[in-house]
Design a protein around this nucleic acid. Structure first.
Lengths: 345, 345
DNA sequence: TTGTAGGCGTTATCAG
DNA sequence: CTGATAACGCCTACAA
């Protein structure tokens, strides 16, 4: 059995409560006894049992991270490593600890959350996704349990603190970048249509075209989860239209890699034949051939801010609901350039 | 205050201990009372407090994952998402929960581990790295705390259960693949020289050349952490040697992307001018241009097995030390082909 | 400034 | 088959 507060108390010839107070560095203990007790603590190699402390305190200093129903592949997106890194950094700063859900299906994930919350294992929760009709969100809301979501909740967004990008403007900026290069036939390649990000970016894309008085062509818009087999066909179709786009807005770097490959396989060149603007600025965006022009949405900061506001909420339950927007910026690299057709005129 | 076992007991008119036994589904309780107690549990919305249970049980059903001193960039390597996915899956299967370290420096990480262990927050630990003179390893060994490492421990490997690939053979296979294509001038691009993986793969590379009676040229061997700025120069130097390699063995897909780009930037083509064999088979290996021939080391399984053996050890402290080797296989895609010089002869 | 005692929510040991 | 009762290790009134 490990050394407890009582053992320390005995050896230091004080009461257990005194030891407890020394641990908490209570001002009501004389420096002299503090010193002695501390000496005994190192002498015996005492370390507080955090589980016991949690029980007494009703607080675990632990927060739970909920991953989306991963569909296996989604998890491979560097987005998650990156938010996790931000979350992790800030949690460390705040002396909190991190626990993750491990469920794969929606039901399993829901059970995980219920267990975390009802089992009193975490003080707060961060949702790494937002989807329609999410029972997890409803549950947390109903329990009035501290949580924040990364992304924009589809419902009751005004009751939920969330950290997001302005994806509409981001897509608008990306599209404008292409417009400035003289492109007029711009395609959009999006991900899962149920995700808010996709919808917002599509909206920004359309808005930019509208503002430029360019009609929106539905056959220029494609939705693919990942560009492995199926997605490539879609891109090929797009590129073999009578008037194929001269530029593409692709909502994710991973997808851009696939697009790059498909385009290359068709004997076309980027950016000579077609320009690409991508999203997320993953590490490999700059390693791609050619390096991708990509919109950096500061994924790390999404994580950092989520933690900050969650903890604020935990430590002060009256903390108001907030909507935090993380800025984005366009990193111009080699995958986007002037529209050749245009410059030839 | 949440509903406890006592509340249930009161309403069901039984003793708290009886409720506890119902939860554990003890055979010594009549079906009749079980039924009644269970009804009351749902009626009151009872959920066990897992913290309290942990304290009473001296077991948390939680395992801690220790990440390497990430140097920020390393964490972006999909290797970690992938092991984590394997770990997560298997933990879920076994009804365990996952906690992560959040420290960045070696000292912080060490403190995290000490806190997890001494604070009794976890029942076991998985180390996602192995390095020389690791105080974490020493600490766990000394405490005789259940842990397993992914990769091969540099010291006391025979006292530590670990899950690894046969990286020597893997590199040998990759090199042989290139040799079969007629390549004789094969370069090696490795990562951090302090990591066991790098060393083992280098060893396998050399072994293959030796077996083929091809002299090892030190100027064909490069070590770069990541191929952002610096690494590219190194590759350029390599490719501008008087007799540049016609093929490369690159120890990581992420690095391969960088290599691909550098080579392309020099006006060379893969695989026509130079073949590449890569490692890890990350999702983007198949999305690259051209799709990368890569050695799949089954990262997911590394995670799964680590968990299996860790839990075996936790549940049976006399479980013997083991060394588990996960098989690898070479996935031939388009980045490797016959050596042109050779076929021209 | 320090000690005593009760509680946090469970489980486990003994009786009965 | 079920009920008291004592841990598990720490915190915190309340007393002294």
């Amino acid at each position: 059995m490990a050394v407890t507060i009582k053992d320390v108390a005995k050896v230091a010839k004080v009461a257990p409560s005194t030891v407890s107070r020394v641990i908490a560095d209570s001002p009501r203990i004389s420096e002299k006894t503090k010193k002695r007790v501390r000496e005994v603590m190192v002498e015996l190699g005492y370390h507080p049992n955090l589980i016991a402390r949690s029980l007494a305190n009703q607080s675990t200093q632990t927060i739970g991270i909920v991953f989306p129903n991963s569909g296996d592949l989604a998890f491979q997106n560097p987005f998650f490593s990156e938010v996790l890194r931000g979350i992790s950094e800030e949690l460390h700063e705040k002396h909190y600890v991190l626990q993750m859900t491990t469920g794969k299906t929606d039901e399993e994930i829901f059970d995980d959350v219920v267990k975390m919350v009802q089992g009193k294992r975490v003080d707060g929760i961060i949702l790494l996704y937002s989807k329609v009709d999410d029972p997890v969100t409803d549950f947390l809301l109903e329990k009035n349990f501290p949580f924040v979501v990364i992304g924009k909740p589809n419902e009751k967004a005004e009751q939920i603190t969330h950290v997001d990008n302005d994806n509409i403007t981001a897509a608008l900026d990306g599209t404008n970048h292409l417009l400035h290069f003289g492109h007029e036939r711009i395609g959009f390649i999006g991900g899962n249509k149920n995700l808010m990000v996709t919808l917002h970016r599509l909206e920004g894309y359309k808005k930019a075209l509208e503002e430029a008085n360019i009609p929106i062509r539905e056959d220029y818009i494609i939705h693919e989860e990942f560009l492995l087999e199926g997605g490539q066909e879609a891109v090929k179709e797009l590129m073999t239209l009578q008037k194929p786009p001269t530029a593409l807005l692709v909502v994710d770097d991973l997808m851009s890699l696939g697009v790059l490959r498909t385009i290359h396989g068709m004997g076309l060149e980027v950016p000579k034949d077609i320009s690409i603007v991508s999203f997320n600025n993953a590490l490999f965006a700059q390693l791609a051939t050619p390096p991708l022009t990509s919109i950096d949405i500061h994924i790390l900061d999404l994580g950092v801010e989520a933690v900050k506001h969650l903890i604020a909420r935990i430590e002060n339950p009256k903390e108001p609901i907030k909507r935090i927007i993380i800025p984005h910026d366009l990193l111009v690299r080699s995958s986007s350039d002037f529209c050749i057709e245009k410059t030839n005129h």
